[in-house]
Design a protein around this nucleic acid. Structure first.
Lengths: 348, 348
DNA sequence: TACTGGCAGTCAATTCTACCGAGTGCCAAG
DNA sequence: CTTGGCACTCGGTAGAATTGACTGCCAGTA
């Protein structure tokens, strides 16, 4: 009785038709009710013509394989992370309801302003739309060409480097030098920087003057600082919308506290999202998340891509019992809208 | 028996010595234990040489006057908002513990970087130090003189106005015009703007050209946009540190949710803080807050003032049962440190 | 007159008991 | 392989009893 030869070689990674249906029904109902689901309600909701007893024995098997779990004897079953994973993997990509589609279109038709504002508003909108916490990751150090570079004299030893990119991004950095720079030096350096960098991107390398005078030093320093932007991914912006939803959707004060604490650490959020994207997965369920406090959470992420380059991402954070189909569709749709939005901007 | 002529005319706004001591003891213990406090523990902790019975009758009187409340018969007493208010008003400004003073000094000795970074880090530090949520409000549209103004051509109808202030603040705005502006127009407008605005602040009014050509229009638009900054207080920055602490310190999921929702709305936070500052009060307790969801919260605020002008504020948000003395001292100290920090920067 | 100790009364919180019912596992029959 | 039947388990709920921390009141005392 150790092995069940029900359907040949199907019990390892795949489930037979009926087991799949049962799993699906359990997921659906548990997402809906937040309660463990029993064998009889499965027979009603799944379009299976079998008795509860049959379902029960199947559920025992599903539990052995790790797809379901029992909170305690004489309770119904609850999907495990593995169960959700199977469910998600076998989801035929659902479509977004017309109403929501409409709302999204309206939002993106009316949204205006700086890149940051668009991303922030998107994040808030997404959270309001779904009632979950949203995370929007945007435009790391811009890959757009530089439109203008300017050094501003704060005082003799401190300059401020202000860089404007063609997509409207503005970056600023302190530049410290160990000699006294006067206004004319700074103005001259500014001029040279503009000549040097205008039209380039931060990943382009440029020839810098090697002279040892003040102006040349300023120019070298500034270029170095700008180029240093690239690898560190510093300047990545994170917009979190609806952190209050955490309190609603996650239960257990401790869990809420921990999840909020994670959201506070933007770097952690960035790496979390990047990890999800790196593995080319759109969803991380419960313990699949590296971060232990997220064991009770599901994360859904979709990239925002402009001309083949991933320039950001939009994500949702909720409990594992979440409407995957709908929310995945929403996330994907928002990311597509954003992509279109930014491509539109670029072409103008 | 309707009136108690115990001490002549003292029962209206002020409390006699003993009542004050009792109130203080109740506040102290309730802050500590979160439990209603009974008459006998008051006799032990307050340095009063009276019996519990006496304290009880005094507490009845305090309750009649609205300083204390009973959750139910046969429970101890809890301070009301009015009780806390009295306590706070009669607090001799406490001193900060040496350890915390040390930590603050160290932090401010090592903190570096752009204004935004300093404020953000301060907010995080303050939250970590106190274990409550902190709010740091910073540098509205800078009052510092303008160092440089620049128009950047995004496309024919869209320009980006980048303004750099002497304190390192950078502001950017979209400028839309209904004619086609080419690069030379924009460059010329940029030049004129610099000549016009360099050294002025946004509250200074300047003479703008009245000609109807493109360049003049650009200049007029830009100046108008900058001057519009002042009244709206747009661009006010809010840094919220430790929102996860809300989950710890406020009880009731609904309360947590509501408070978090408020913190999400930055505008609301700004107006809340400004209201506290406007009334020249440092503390708002419970129902004193205009915002209904904050009825269970206390807010402590201190202004950051540079050369007589309020350029920001630092605040703490916690439950009403909070260590007022210590946290007020901490808040004040941080605001002073910030003041010093920015004055130092300005003088450099 | 102001304070005190004593005492009866109140009420939330805790514990316990009993019970219900949803749901299971097992089994023998179809 | 499926099914109905049945005994069993165990969380959740409701009600009763108990506990204990207070209070308010009062009569006695300095």
């Amino acid at each position: 009785m150790a092995q069940k030869p029900s359907t040949p070689d199907s019990s390892q990674t795949d489930l037979d038709q009926r087991k799949a249906s049962i799993l699906e029904a359990v997921v659906a109902e548990h997402v809906d009710t937040a309660q463990p689901v029993g064998s009889s309600s499965v027979t009603q909701n799944a379009k299976l013509d079998v008795s509860p007893a049959t379902v029960r024995s199947e559920m025992v098997s599903l539990e052995r394989q790790g797809y379901l779990a029992q909170p305690h004897t004489s309770a119904g079953r609850v999907p495990t992370d593995k169960g959700y994973r199977y469910f998600v993997d076998h989801l035929k990509s659902g479509k977004l309801g017309a109403a929501k589609q409409q709302q999204l279109s309206e939002f993106f038709a009316t949204v205006r302003g700086e890149v940051e504002d668009v991303l922030e508003q998107t994040s808030m909108m997404l959270s309001k739309l779904t009632n979950y916490t949203s995370v929007v990751l945007g435009g790391s150090s811009s890959t757009a060409p530089i439109v203008s570079v300017q050094l501003v004299n704060l005082d003799a030893h401190h300059q401020l480097l202000v860089t404007v990119f063609s997509d409207g991004t503005v970056l600023k950095h302190s530049v410290l030098v160990d000699f006294e720079a006067d206004h004319t030096d700074v103005a001259e350096a500014s001029k040279q920087l503009n000549a040097l960098l205008h039209g380039t991107t931060i990943s382009d390398r440029v020839q810098v003057p090697s002279r040892q005078d003040g102006v040349a030093t300023l120019v070298r320093e500034s270029v170095a600082i700008l180029h240093a932007e690239q690898p560190t991914r510093e300047g990545e912006q994170v917009f979190i919308g609806g952190s209050s939803k955490v309190a609603e959707s996650i239960d257990g004060v401790d869990n809420v506290r921990n999840v909020l604490a994670i959201l506070e650490q933007e770097l952690v959020v960035v790496s979390m999202i990047e990890e999800v994207l790196a593995e080319d997965v759109a969803v991380k369920i419960g313990s699949e998340n590296q971060l232990e406090p997220l064991a009770s959470c599901a994360v859904i992420v979709a990239p925002v891509t402009v001309e083949g380059e991933t320039i950001g991402a939009v994500g949702l954070l909720g409990p594992t019992r979440i409407k995957y189909s709908e929310l995945m569709a929403t996330t994907r749709s928002v990311s597509e809208h954003l992509t279109k939005h930014f491509e539109g901007e670029r072409d103008r």
